[in-house]
Design a protein around this nucleic acid. Structure first.
Length: 303
DNA sequence: TGCAGTGTTGCTTC
DNA sequence: CGAAGCAACACTGC
């Protein structure tokens, strides 16, 4: 899923649904020969540690940092989740089957959406319901840290673009450290700005009228101002529409967001450009390694 | 049938 | 040593 707006929507959902609840049990089907980082529940040894320090604890508060979900517990530990491509977290009633794992009790509700199968992680809560993570591609990472160590994890992570004190000058400072690079690649760099991913990068550049292949230092200052504003507006809009469910993302209740209905560029190849008066047609190219969608007419290229 | 995909890490190569 | 490029993780939809 998960770019900033989807992660924020999930965090808001956790804060409205499961605050103050006690974790009675933890189950996972993540076991992987190959897992990212040292601390991952995909390592069975690590899962023992994770289990020991989460069961019995109470969920105090959820928070977002970049594309990570932080779930603070009352035992001075914090669960850190990165949902990568297909992870999404839901709350509801689930049943366990030894062969199939966890599945929703209500076979017709939103939780029964085919994209909501693939439950890899399940917390049983003291309200009799469950907090689960669906993750088709198994790319997600889940780990646990003493809460005071969490800040250290994000030492190199860039500023939060929706933070009140994130100014145009902050944006310029961050971005201009990347001289010689292509603007879209810079927007996707989590050490420059936290939380922007492929969808919102394409939408922001469309809105600001900048070709994604432009070199950072060649983009005029007034265009950079438009980009700064566009990034913030597009991310806010993503949150307002409940996230983007073009693919797997679902909210805490298993329902789709609506931002995919508002795209002007992302996955719009062959569509007439929506910008008023623009006669362009959206194209798809590859920038870096990522599929990139833009209007070759009104998005100006600076090289 | 084949390829692309909301993300990041860590390896290889230059 | 740094940067760039790319495979890997796994599975579905078009």
């Amino acid at each position: 899923m998960p770019e900033l707006p989807e992660v924020q929507t999930t965090v808001n959902g956790i804060n409205t649904r499961v605050l103050g609840m006690r974790i009675e049990d933890v189950w996972t089907s993540y076991v992987s020969r190959y897992y990212f980082g040292k601390n991952s529940i995909k390592d069975p040894k690590y899962f023992e540690y994770f289990h020991k320090n989460t069961v019995g604890a109470t969920i105090k508060k959820a928070e977002r940092r970049a594309k990570n979900i932080l779930i603070h517990l009352d035992n001075s530990h914090t669960i850190v989740i990165h949902m990568k491509m297909t992870g999404h977290i839901m709350h509801g009633e689930y049943t366990f089957d030894a062969r199939l794992g966890w599945s929703p009790k209500d076979k017709k509700g939103p939780l029964a959406d085919p994209f909501n199968r693939f439950i890899r992680l399940c917390f049983t809560l003291d309200n009799g319901k469950h907090l689960v993570m669906s993750d088709m591609r198994r790319f997600a990472s889940v780990s646990l840290y003493p809460s005071h160590e969490v800040g250290e994890l994000f030492k190199k992570t860039g500023p939060e673009p929706l933070h009140d004190d994130f100014t145009f000058n902050n944006f310029l400072d961050a971005v201009s450290r990347k001289k010689g690079k292509v603007i879209k690649i810079v927007l996707l760099d989590q050490e420059v700005i936290a939380g922007v991913g492929n969808i919102y990068a394409d939408e922001s550049l469309w809105r600001a009228g900048i070709d994604p292949r432009s070199k950072v230092e060649k983009v005029p200052r007034e265009k950079m101002k438009l980009l700064y504003l566009a990034v913030r507006e597009v991310l806010k809009s993503g949150i307002d529409f409940g996230g983007d469910s073009m693919s797997d993302y679902r909210n805490i209740d298993g329902e789709r967001g609506k931002f995919q209905e508002k795209h002007n560029a992302y996955k719009k190849k062959g569509h007439k450009c929506n910008k008023r008066g623009c006669k362009g047609v959206i194209e798809r190219i590859v920038v870096g390694t990522r599929g990139t969608h833009f209007c070759p007419v009104h998005q100006e290229r600076f090289v």
